[in-house]
Amino acid sequence: MSLIRWNPSRDLAAWSSDIFNMQREINRLFDTFVRGGTQADESFGLTYWTPAVDIAERDNEYVVKVDLPGVEKDDVKITLVSGVLTIRGEKKQENESKTGSFHRIERSYGSFQRSFTLPSSVRNDGIDAVYKDGILTITLPKAEEAKPKQIEVRVK
């Protein structure tokens, strides 16, 4: 039987790397929740982020605004299927920015998708989307039956 010299630092190294892994995972978890899932989730080999959305309702329409800085117009897809509005797309990292040495990366890249159920029905033909200054604005006119109606009641 060969004798193996006990090396306390080896045990310590193995143990501390576990701790560091755990710490990293916890940090990642916190980032995901605290920062609203904007951190790229690289442990699954995919990146995803969540753009901020504002939705307003008017008498005749819904206005949906999405923060999409640096996203190409052609990389955004908007669909409306049985009252569910889905905005999906991808933010690509600029090629030039891959060659530098980074001091800080806070921006998120990769795919995104957000879906919303609109409270009332929407006219399919009048939907309009404009991308300007990094904000996507979608206007969805309400269907006739969803608009507020004023009914006059004659009091006898």
Partner: peptide
């Protein structure tokens, strides 16, 4: 705003996300 800072040979480039800012 989120920012990226990258250093190159002769310059650094700061990229900030400022949607809707004029």
């Amino acid at each position: 705003p989120a920012i990226d800072i990258a250093e190159y040979e002769n310059e650094s480039i700061v990229v900030a996300e400022l949607p809707g800012v004029k």
